[in-house]
Simulated scan of single mutants.
Amino acid sequence: MRINLMAACIGMLFLMTPLASGAADYVIGEGDGLDISVWGVKELTFSVKVRPDGKITVPGLGDVAASGATPKELQVSLGTRLRELVKNPIVTVTVRDITNSKVYIYGGGIKSGVYDLQRRTTLLQLLCTLGEVKTADLRRAYLLRNGKRVKEDFYKLFIKGESENDILLESGDSLFIPLLLDKNVYILGAVLTPKAVEYREGMRVMEAILEAGGFTKFADQDDIVIRRKVGQKEQSLEVKAKKLFKQGDLSQNLVLEAGDYVLVKESLF
């Protein structure tokens, strides 16, 4: 699982191609560096930085608003205004330096910080750059955009590799990735050594029971309950171990989640 995940991350990072200068979906912001050229007019080929007021200075035109426009929109705007100076101007706008496009990461599950979007980047690609996420509760993580949650639960995307659920990040997005508060699974009841064991990815109920010493002679192996908190609700899952042992019913060997309580009840007879 870890090898496949690492390979997937490496592959996703190679796919992080630089942001096309004329990409219609990139919005120019304050501090961005632009290369502007008018074909055949040397005096109108120059580099400029977008000022804090969102404007740039263009020879012959003066101040022109750039912030909030895409490169294509700025090209059209400059082309229209430059007709006063140049016959049929062919304008090209290239985003050279991106300083305005940022994603904010917080929540305590990983190190908080600000990520500069210097190219088209998806959520999965960004998660692959964050390093260790062992302490992160990916199931409770979400992506906040313009005050609304547009993506919840990163577990299936990042751990299970369901890349069809990936999403392209936008400037100003915030990733809330909380700390995994409960890292244990608790095995109680008719087991030899009731205890808490550290949760591991892919841990199953019988594996946890064996770590607690296995069943006592009083255990009812067909009366095992997994108690799990899902949001504000509690879920109970039944396990019948005899079906697993005698009939080979692997569906009884359920996968556990961090914070689960496994209760092995005693037989009445």
Results as ranks from 00 to 15, higher is better:
159 I>K: 15
237 L>M: 13
234 E>S: 03
231 G>W: 03
107 G>M: 11
80 T>G: 05
228 R>T: 04
177 I>L: 07
93 V>Q: 07
200 R>G: 01
57 T>E: 09
252 Q>N: 01
89 P>G: 08
256 L>A: 03
171 S>T: 11
123 L>E: 13
219 A>D: 04
210 L>Q: 14
33 G>H: 12
148 K>Q: 15
194 P>F: 00
4 N>V: 08
189 G>V: 00
17 T>Q: 13
34 L>V: 09
236 S>G: 02
199 Y>H: 04
201 E>L: 04
43 E>M: 10
194 P>N: 05
160 K>Q: 14
164 E>D: 14
236 S>T: 12
234 E>Y: 07
69 A>I: 03
173 D>P: 06
245 F>D: 04
226 I>Y: 08
192 L>G: 00
13 L>M: 13
25 D>A: 11
78 L>T: 11
261 Y>C: 00
40 G>S: 10
154 F>K: 15
171 S>L: 03
169 L>K: 11
21 S>A: 09
186 Y>E: 01
121 T>L: 05
190 A>T: 03
129 T>K: 12
234 E>F: 04
150 V>A: 09
49 K>H: 04
76 V>T: 07
86 V>K: 09
212 A>E: 10
121 T>A: 09
227 R>V: 05
247 Q>Y: 04
22 G>K: 11
187 I>D: 00
211 E>A: 10
32 D>M: 12
75 Q>Y: 00
179 L>A: 14
144 L>D: 12
91 V>Q: 13
38 V>G: 07
238 E>V: 06
132 E>A: 11
41 V>Q: 15
248 G>W: 02
208 A>K: 08
220 D>T: 03
209 I>K: 07
254 L>S: 00
57 T>L: 04
152 E>M: 13
76 V>Q: 05
114 V>P: 01
6 M>N: 08
4 N>T: 08
127 L>F: 06
38 V>N: 11
44 L>Y: 09
1 M>G: 10
267 S>L: 03
220 D>L: 00
239 V>K: 08
154 F>Q: 14
232 Q>I: 06
213 G>H: 07
9 C>T: 04
253 N>I: 04
42 K>N: 14
192 L>D: 06
156 K>P: 04
181 L>T: 12
156 K>R: 15
156 K>N: 15
102 K>S: 07
84 E>A: 13
157 L>E: 14
229 K>P: 00
222 D>V: 03
52 P>C: 08
75 Q>T: 13
177 I>F: 07
109 G>I: 11
250 L>P: 00
232 Q>T: 14
102 K>Y: 02
11 G>E: 14
229 K>S: 02
158 F>R: 14
